[in-house]
Computed example of a mutant assay.
Amino acid sequence: MLEFRLALLLMSDRDVVNIEDQPAPVWYLMPGETKRRYTIFDFRVTYASGRVEAYAVKAAERVDADEIELIVECVNAQSLEGFADEAFVVTDEFFTIEMAENAEDIVEARKSRNDSDCRAVLEFIRRHDGPVSIHDICDAFEDRGWAKTAILNLIYDGEIEHLDPTETFDESPLVQAVFH
């Protein structure tokens, strides 16, 4: 489930341009050993900036037992050339279930994007000085569903921001326009 949740967060990030699930193995040496080992990262992610990061996803309680932090440290020191710019361990402490739920909503909304709906909702939000509730925005339009889809697409676009991204959109519905 942790890998799935991280995948949702990555897919909902407009800066992510490519996600590779379990890319090719990376070889490394553990301290004091002469026999090479390999590891397979859960994801290799390319960002719009060109930066490439590899992620090993583990439950926080498994990090020590699996020596994953030491493995990633060895890989970072020895084996990243041509594979990634940097590798990281990502645990369930990195994100909340609520953040993953929001990401899933954004991923689903992107499939039904309508640019004219997005423009109408953004115009409505920009008329407000400060935060406005997602519920109030949806109530202002004839079709609550398309308004909500537009809101989620605007969050993805970076045109509006969710003011408490650690909570679900329903539990903490305030958003505001981002002025660039």
Rank of each mutant, 00 (worst) to 15 (best):
M1I: 12
M1A: 09
L2N: 06
A7Q: 14
L8R: 09
L9I: 08
S12N: 06
D13W: 04
V17M: 05
N18D: 14
P25A: 01
V26R: 06
L29P: 08
R36W: 06
T39D: 07
T39L: 01
I40V: 15
F43D: 01
F43G: 02
Y47D: 05
G50Y: 13
G50F: 11
V52T: 12
E53N: 06
A54Q: 08
A60H: 14
R62K: 14
D64C: 02
I71S: 03
V72I: 00
C74Y: 02
C74P: 14
C74M: 15
V75K: 02
L80E: 05
F83P: 10
A84I: 10
V89S: 09
T91E: 11
D92E: 11
E104D: 13
I106A: 07
A109L: 00
S112V: 08
D117W: 10
R119E: 14
A120S: 14
V121P: 10
E123C: 05
E123S: 14
E123N: 10
F124A: 00
R126G: 02
G130H: 05
V132I: 15
S133I: 05
H135L: 01
D143P: 04
I151R: 01
Y156L: 09
Y156P: 03
E159V: 08
I160G: 02
E161S: 09
T168H: 00
T168L: 03
F169S: 01
D170K: 13
D170E: 15
V178N: 07
